[in-house]
Design a binder for these strands. Structure first.
Length: 577
RNA sequence: CGGGGCGUAGCGCAGUGGUAGCGCGCUUGGUUCGGGACCAAGAGGCCGGAGGUUCGAUCCCUCUCGCCCCGACCA
């Protein structure tokens, strides 16, 4: 490509909407243009990178034995009603009606559609296992689209679905995809980490997220400094403190006027926050109230709590609801006599074994001391729903846990029979018996991958593309387009590289050299060839890496093509230095 | 959904009750040519939309649409 004819309008100033590094540079480098909130045009330069990501994913998926399909974006509401997700998926599901008032969803993911396809086409154990995937635009009506292409309402996704005869086979498929994702991340050049994750609206009970490590990531990863344990904060657990054995004290009601927070309460009673237990009231699935008891110094992880309660949605109860149901204002809820008021009681492991703790009295201005579970109150369930944080102990080895931010580029799920059951996706085994297929599903946010890569590879001047997904691998800069000998040489070099299969762009624009250098840095082509008159008259041409701009290598003009071809080929096959 | 903010040229911004400017970018000509050069001449705007007040509105008022940020976290 000649720069002079490419649609690359770089911007000197950052459009004000951009927050993150990747978003800023993608806009300035003319990779994407905004059409609306969370809706973007992919410009030629951005699309080239996107296509390279697509190619890598496609190659690895094919190598893993998956078959590519293309499913419709538009899917009938009936399919979603069959699995119940028409309601469960919530407002994030984009819904439309046709002229006959029939309802449709714009696919945010395709479990229903693929399961429907497979139940119609696959009937025999001989056809299993099978793994089908597609690369396609997905639609999600995000609460708040953000960071450009990182969280947008329409985005490109690779989604794959595996169908197996049994759990054992499905686990093999899952591991196969896990390994494939590792390969994809490595080829793209990510610094990443695979972590245990919550399954969210997709379902299933085993899942791993592939996190690209970056400060601007929206997810927090909890990992162990000593062993392999790593989990999304939504899922992460930690080793609980040992149970302290102490003689049970009598239950005592204490007047605690205007004492509402744990800090106030602990100070008032001369105790530490971890010697108290707080009770937080939730509304489960929009109807019933539930109480969650946790140690005073701990925070509730609502994702874990929601799972423990078997709920699809929970929210904090309002002060009015609390007063009406418990008879006490906010700040005085406690587990004692709560179940008698028809409130389900979940107790976190941090609070379950506390001896002689302090809780709310369910009465204005009163708390209890000397509270012991079993003697003073009975729970519906004990579970782990506390937030794990930096400094906690690893649940596997007891080592110190630490935190870091990450961008979720992919997610693999072991689904089990969630969809095959509700949608009756069955096959006949050797004995003619009908059995449910066991499924897995595997997603990669393809457009997000491009942004995540930039987030991980940049400096103050712009993007630093890894060779594998750079829009162009090499940029040839003619310092002065009117210098005929230099220009002629560049033309020859350009053709030679192109013929050798190198993705090359030549900046042949008749503008001052500073602009060309600035654009080269901003867009971030991995390799730069500079042909300037002063060097060229002595037969020298300068080559440099974007990632190491100060290191300029002077080459004989006749050896440039060969060198470049070697560098690009070796970097693309993963031999990066 | 709650709170805050912003809509004026492609991008970044000024501005005024009498229908608009600046910088960058763009076009043309010329001089430059190794880190966003210079001179000259140009093109480009229903001042987000609708209604109202007014002799007159981009400006004041009302509504609306769009966009951005923060929050939707606790006893």
């Amino acid at each position: 490509m000649r720069f002079s004819s490419a649609l690359i309008n770089t911007l000197r100033e950052t459009p004000k909407e951009a927050e993150t590094v990747a978003h800023k540079f993608m806009l300035r480098a003319c990779m994407i243009k905004k059409l609306g909130a969370g809706i973007y045009d992919w410009m030629p330069l951005g699309f080239k990178s996107l296509q390279k990501v697509i190619s890598i994913i496609r190659e690895e998926m094919n190598k893993a034995g998956a078959q590519e399909v293309l499913l419709p974006v538009l899917s009938p509401a009936e399919l979603w009603k069959e699995t119940g997700r028409w309601n469960v998926y919530g407002k994030e599901l984009m819904r439309i009606k046709d002229r006959h008032d029939n309802e449709f969803a714009l696919g945010p993911t395709h479990e229903e559609v693929i399961t429907d396809l497979v139940r119609r086409e696959v009937n025999s154990y001989k056809q299993l296992p099978i793994n089908l995937y597609q690369i396609q635009g997905k639609f999600r009506d995000e609460i708040r689209p953000r960071f450009g292409v990182m969280r947008s309402r329409e985005f490109l996704m690779k989604d794959a679905y595996s169908f197996d005869r049994d759990e054992e086979g499905a686990m093999k498929s899952y591991k196969n995809m896990f390994e494939t994702y590792v390969k994809i991340c490595k080829r793209i050049g990510f610094k990443f980490r695979a972590v245990e994750a919550d399954s969210g609206a997709i379902g299933g009970n085993l899942s791993s997220e592939f996190m690209v490590l970056a400060e601007t990531g929206e997810d927090t990863i909890i990992y162990c400094e000593q062993c392999e344990y790593a989990a999304n904060m939504e899922k992460a657990s930690f080793k609980k403190d040992p149970v302290v054995d102490a003689a049970e004290e009598p239950l005592t009601k204490v007047h605690t006027p205007n004492i509402r927070t744990v800090e106030e309460l602990a100070a008032f009673l001369g105790k530490k926050p971890e010697e108290t237990a707080k009770t937080i009231l939730y509304i489960v699935d929009g109807k019933k109230m539930a109480g969650a008891v946790i140690r005073g110094d701990r925070e509730i992880n609502e994702v874990k709590l929601k799972n423990a309660l078997g709920a699809s949605e929970i929210r904090l109860a309002t002060p009015e609801e609390i007063l009406e149901k418990t008879g006490a204002p906010v700040g005085f809820a406690g587990p004692i006599n709560l179940r008698e008021k028809g409130i389900r009681l979940a107790v976190d492991e941090t609070a379950a074994y506390l001896k002689n703790t302090v809780t709310g009295g369910n009465e204005n201005d009163y708390h209890y001391t000397g509270v012991n579970r079993g003697r003073d109150y009975q729970e519906n369930l004990i579970a782990d729903f506390a937030v794990a944080k930096k400094g906690d102990k690893c649940p596997k080895c007891g080592g110190a846990l630490n935190e870091q931010k990450g961008i979720e580029m992919g997610h693999v799920f072991f689904l089990g029979n969630k969809y095959s059951k509700s949608m009756k996706a069955t096959y006949l085994d050797e004995s003619g018996k009908s059995k449910e297929m066991v499924m897995g599903c595997y997603g990669i946010g393809v457009s997000r991958v491009v942004a995540a890569s930039i987030e991980q590879n940049n400096d103050e001047n712009g993007i630093i593309w890894p060779m594998a997904i750079a829009p162009y691998e090499v940029n040839i800069i003619v310092v002065n387009a009117k210098y005929k000998e230099g220009m002629d040489y560049c033309e020859t070099l350009y053709k030679e590289l192109k013929e050798a299969g190198i993705d090359v762009i030549m900046d042949d624009r008749d503008i001052s050299p500073g602009v060309k250098f600035k654009d080269a840095d901003l867009i971030g082509f991995p390799l730069r060839v500079v042909v300037g008159e002063k060097n060229f008259v002595t037969g020298q041409v300068e080559v440099s890496y974007r990632r190491d701009p100060k290191n300029r290598i002077m080459l004989d003009k006749n050896s440039v093509a060969g060198e470049i071809i070697n560098i690009v080929k070796s970097e693309k096959t993963g031999n990066t230095k």
